[in-house]
Design a binder for these strands. Structure first.
Lengths: 151, 151
DNA sequence: ACCAGATGGTTGCGGATACAACAATCACGG
DNA sequence: CCGTGATTGTTGTATCCGCAACCATCTGGT
C-alpha cells in the first residue's frame, strides 16, 4: 500500500516552517501591540512614499479584505495609519502611515530583517540565494508573483 | 531609511506558499469530509502499522493537543479512527485506523502525492531535490527534525 | 440620462483556534 | 504507603477568521 511520510511531505513542511517563522517574528511586533495582518499593512504602506488604497494592500499582501479592513481599523485606533477619502473615486479610501506609524516601521524593519537572518543562518550565501530562487520559481508556477500593478 | 519588500521577505513568502499549498490539498480531502488536522492524524496513524497515542500524534504533527483531540473526536464519529485505553498507562489513549480509515488513507495518499507533484512541477528533478535538501537544513537549524522518538 | 453590473470597503455571523483550567492517572521520594 | 508534581487528554471560553450580505460609488452601454 502506498504510504506517505508527513515529515517529507512538502505541504506539511511548508506549513510547519511558516508557522515557526511567524511565531519567531511575532515576538518582535507583539511589543508594539500589532499582529501579523497589521504588520503587513505597515509593510505595504512603508515600502512606498505616497498613500495607497486598501484594495492595493489587499492585492499586495494576498490577505482577505475583511482582515485588512479590521487591521486598518486597529492601526488607525493606535494612530499609526491615517484614512483619507480619495477625491477622484470616493469609494476608495487612501491609507498612509502617520509619523508615529513611520517611526514604528523604521524601528521594526531592522529587527525583522535580523530575525529573518537568524532563521536562515544555517544556509550559506549560495544556498540562501538558491533557496530564494526556487521559492520564486514555485511562486511563479502558481501565479503568485504579480501584485504590484501600480495604481 | 531601511525598507523591507514584503514580497522578498522569506516569512511572508513561506506563509503565502503554505496557504496556497494547503488550499490546493483541501480540495482533495474535503471530499471525504475531513480537514487539515484530521488529515494529519490519518497520515500519522497510516504511516505505522500499530496504534499510536494521541501524544505521539501531537509530537509528530506539531499540532496543538486540543486540535488533535477534537480532530480525533470527529474522526471517531466518522468511524475512521478507533480509541482504546492503553492498559499499561491508563492516561494514554491508543489510536488506530479502522478498516474504513485505512481505506480512505489508501485512497487519499495517491491523490495528495499527485497534488504535491503538480505544485512542484515547475522544478526539474535536480531543483526539486535541492529544494527539499534546503528545507531540511532550515528545519534542522530550527530543531524541527526529531519527532519520531518511537514509543 | 439611466440602469445594470462591477468595484471598494464594512460588518454580522457561524465556525474554528489557541490558551488555560481541569480531571484522571502515573512516577518518584521520603 | 502516601503525597507532591508531572503527564495525558478533554473541555470551557474568549478571540480570530473568512464567507457572504450589504451599502456606497463608479463604469459602460444604450
Amino acid at each position: 500500500m502506498a504510504r506517505l511520510n508527513l515529515l517529507r511531505f512538502s505541504p506539511f513542511r511548508l506549513n510547519r516552517l511558516a508557522a515557526e517563522f511567524s511565531g519567531a517574528l511575532a515576538e518582535d511586533y507583539a511589543r508594539f501591540g500589532i499582529d501579523i495582518p497589521e504588520w503587513r499593512v505597515l509593510a505595504t504602506l512603508g515600502l512606498h512614499d505616497g498613500p495607497r488604497s486598501a484594495a492595493y494592500v489587499v492585492r499586495c499582501t494576498r490577505t482577505h479584505k475583511s482582515r485588512i479592513s479590521r487591521a486598518v481599523g486597529h492601526l488607525a485606533g493606535l494612530g499609526l495609519v491615517e484614512r483619507r477619502e480619495d477625491e477622484a473615486d470616493r469609494r476608495e479610501i487612501m491609507l498612509a502611515l502617520t509619523p508615529a506609524g513611520r517611526a514604528i516601521y523604521a524601528e521594526l524593519v531592522p529587527l525583522l530583517l535580523a530575525r529573518e537572518e537568524r532563521l536562515l543562518a544555517v544556509l550559506d550565501p549560495g544556498e540562501r540565494r538558491e533557496f530564494e530562487r526556487l521559492l520564486g520559481k514555485i511562486e511563479a508556477g502558481l501565479g503568485l508573483m504579480r501584485c504590484d500593478e501600480e495604481p
